[in-house]
Simulated assay, not measured.
Amino acid sequence: MLTRKQLDLLAFIHKRVQRDGVPPSFDEMKLALDLRSKSGIHRLITALEERGFIRRLAHRARAIEIVKLPESLGGAARSGFSPQVIDGDLPDTPAAVANAPVHALEVPVMGRIAAGVPIEAISQVSHSISVPGNMVQGSGEHYALEVKGDSMIDAGINDGDVVVIRETSVADDGDIVVALVEDHEATLKRFRRAGTAIALEAANPAYETRTLRADQVKVQGRLVGLIRSY
Rank of each mutant, 00 (worst) to 15 (best):
R193T: 08
A179I: 04
I198R: 07
Q220K: 04
E182F: 01
I129M: 01
M152Y: 08
R56W: 07
E71W: 09
A197F: 09
P205Y: 14
I165S: 04
P91W: 01
H142Y: 06
D34G: 11
L48E: 10
A197M: 08
G140T: 08
E185G: 07
G138E: 03
R222C: 01
G21P: 06
D183G: 14
R166S: 00
K30L: 04
R228E: 12
F26V: 10
I198M: 10
A98G: 14
R213L: 15
V109A: 11
E106R: 01
E120R: 10
V219K: 01
D175F: 12
R62Y: 07
R55I: 02
F53K: 03
E167S: 05
G40H: 00
G133Y: 08
K5I: 02
Q18M: 15
R190T: 04
I86A: 04
D173W: 06
L7S: 13
S72K: 11
E141Q: 14
D183M: 08
G21W: 01
Q6I: 00
A214Q: 13
R43H: 11
A114Q: 08
R213M: 14
V177L: 08
T46W: 00
R78F: 02
Q6V: 00
I165Y: 12
V217C: 09
V67A: 03
S130K: 08
S79P: 09
E120K: 06
R78T: 06
I54K: 15
R78G: 05
E49I: 09
V178D: 04
V22L: 10
V162F: 06
S82Y: 13
S169T: 13
F12I: 10
V125M: 09
G52Y: 06
R60G: 15
Q6G: 01
R19F: 09
I227A: 02
V67L: 08
T46M: 01
Q84E: 13
L10V: 07
Q18F: 10
V97W: 03
P205F: 14
R43G: 12
R36D: 13
M135W: 13
E106N: 07
I122A: 07
D159V: 00
V109M: 01
Y207M: 05
V85I: 15
A63M: 01
L31K: 07
G221W: 04
S39G: 03
L10S: 00
E208F: 14
A155I: 05
M110C: 12
E185D: 11
V170I: 14
D34P: 11
V85C: 08
I13W: 02
H42Y: 13
E141I: 12
V164W: 11
I54M: 06
K30F: 07
D87P: 10
H103P: 05
R56I: 15
R78E: 04
I113A: 03
E120T: 06
M135D: 00
L90F: 12
E182G: 04
E28R: 03
L48N: 12
M152G: 02
A76H: 06
V170L: 15
A206R: 05
N158W: 05
D159C: 02
F12K: 13
P70D: 05
G160R: 01
V67P: 07
A114V: 00
P83E: 13
A214C: 13
A11D: 10
G160S: 05
S151C: 05
A179V: 12
A121L: 09
E141G: 14
S139I: 09
E146Y: 10
A202R: 03
I129S: 01
V178K: 13
